[in-house]
């Protein structure tokens, strides 16, 4: 028997399912950051807004990276449905704390796919995700640094505005 299916597809379907899940997660992250940018704009944190606009774009790039990988490997990427985007935050600190929480969730999800791909013997998917593993280290680190800066600056008096100004250091 000729392996027509295997010849047309170089990853396992289980990996494809998980990567489609990750596509959704990255799209969701992009939408969340856009909502955060909107909140920042409305509450006078214009530098932070810029930061989140850029994050939103980056998350979309992550999504497209996976999308194109699925195309390259003969899989079938699925355009994600996104709903339930929170637009309410109690403060700028809340915004950044939620961001870190979300990035940790994304990291966990990626690690789980790596582990599952390894279990399936899907080396292609495992290697592909290397970039994402390192990217998550960077993203988590960025947000942690910003939270440290917030801690040091303090939110009293002009603190909030100083925080916003300093976010510029994390916009390349």
């Amino acid at each position: 028997m000729k392996d027509i299916a295997r010849q047309s597809m170089s990853i396992k379907v289980e990996s494809m399912d998980m990567l489609n899940g990750q596509i959704k997660m990255e799209a969701h992250a992009s939408a969340i950051y856009l909502a955060m940018a909107s909140w920042c704009e409305q509450n006078g944190f214009f530098t932070s807004a810029k930061f989140f606009f850029k994050q939103a774009e980056e998350e979309r790039e992550h999504m497209m990276k996976i999308f194109n990988f699925l195309i390259d490997t003969g899989g079938s990427p699925i355009s994600p449905e996104i709903s339930n985007i929170n637009h309410d935050y109690s403060s700028i600190v809340d915004v950044f704390e939620s961001t870190l929480e979300h990035e940790v969730k994304v990291t966990t999800s990626i690690h789980n796919i790596v582990k599952k791909a390894r279990e399936l013997g899907d080396i292609t998917t495992e290697r592909f995700l290397d970039w994402f593993v390192m990217e998550q280290v960077e993203e988590e680190n960025t947000i942690r640094d910003i939270l440290d800066m917030i801690e040091v600056t303090g939110t009293e008096g002009v603190g909030l505005q100083m925080i916003d100004n300093q976010v510029a250091n994390w916009i390349e």
């Binding site: 392996d3 379907v13 289980e14 399912d17 399936l120 013997g121 899907d122």
Partner: peptide, 15 residues
Amino acid sequence: FCVMGIAATRQTASV
């Protein structure tokens, strides 16, 4: 999908 060698397990993850 299993027989064709592009799925590793019979129990497929939910899609």
